[in-house]
């Protein structure tokens, strides 16, 4: 396997590790972006109105239970006749990843809004905050820790599942696994798996850093040391 990593061929060109990592990241972030654009507003709506919660919980569980690969192939078969070009494969892959990413973000967002300190919301209303001001200045900031952890969960799911894109002859790190299997090149397979794991870990770390920045220290006492804050 070390041979694989030391081979300069594997570090350049369209099939090199950098390009494939980039492609992998591209699928991941496009899917995550679309999922967030759907799930965050929907989660806020459900959280604020308290309606549709049961429906969403059921739907989220159903989505989780779907077999990723089967779904991918199904969508390719449905979409392929409609679109001619490589998009016929890209779109189904993205759809599958989005479906995977929506539930954790949705759950995180609506439970974040619902669990936001009721007294604070009540006080804001009593002081004359409008509904919109309560949402953006009180509820959403208080929900951020849970929204962020929903996003993080989704990101990890997507980055590891993006390997399936390779099944429908697309790029990304999954190619090493698929190609390695096809040619019985086990070191290559293993290298592919390792690269995905490292990428996931790196993203996880990055995301934790991002959380420190966007979540108010007033809400981080459960995740960071209180002493550090108290002396700050």
């Amino acid at each position: 396997m070390l041979d694989f990593f030391f081979d300069p061929e594997n570090w350049s060109g369209g099939n090199g590790i950098p390009m494939r990592t980039l492609a992998h990241l591209a699928y991941t972030f496009i899917a995550l972006g679309i999922a967030a654009a759907i799930a965050v507003p929907l989660g806020i709506l459900i959280g604020v109105t308290g309606r549709g919660e049961a429906l969403i919980a059921g739907l989220a569980n159903a989505l989780r239970a779907l077999p990723t690969l089967g779904l991918l192939i199904l969508i390719v078969m449905l979409v392929a006749p409609l679109i001619s070009s490589s998009l016929a494969f890209t779109i189904p892959a993205i759809i599958v990843l989005v479906l995977l990413a929506v539930p954790p973000i949705l759950t995180g967002t609506y439970s974040g809004i619902q669990n936001a300190d009721r007294n604070a919301v009540q006080a804001a209303r009593g002081m004359g905050y409008t509904t919109g001001q309560i949402l953006w200045r009180v509820q959403v900031p208080m929900a951020l820790p849970l929204i962020m952890s929903g996003l993080r969960g989704a990101l990890l799911q997507v980055v590891s599942t993006a390997t399936v894109a390779a099944f429908v002859s697309l790029g990304g790190l999954g190619r090493y696994i698929i190609d390695g299997r096809a040619t019985q090149d086990y070191p290559q397979m293993l290298a592919g798996a390792l690269l995905v794991a490292v990428l996931a870990l790196a993203l996880e770390l990055l995301f934790m850093l991002l959380e420190r920045f966007v979540v108010s220290p007033g809400l981080q006492r459960k995740t960071t040391s209180g002493a550090a804050l108290a002396t700050a």
Binding site: A120, G126, M127, S216, L219
Partner: peptide, 22 residues
């Protein structure tokens, strides 16, 4: 309703402070 509330200071039992604000 908003104008009314803005001329009335409101202190609730458990303070109801915004946890994300200093």
């Amino acid at each position: 309703v908003v104008a009314l509330r803005r001329q009335i200071g409101y202190v609730i039992q458990n303070s109801g402070l915004f946890p994300h604000r200093t």
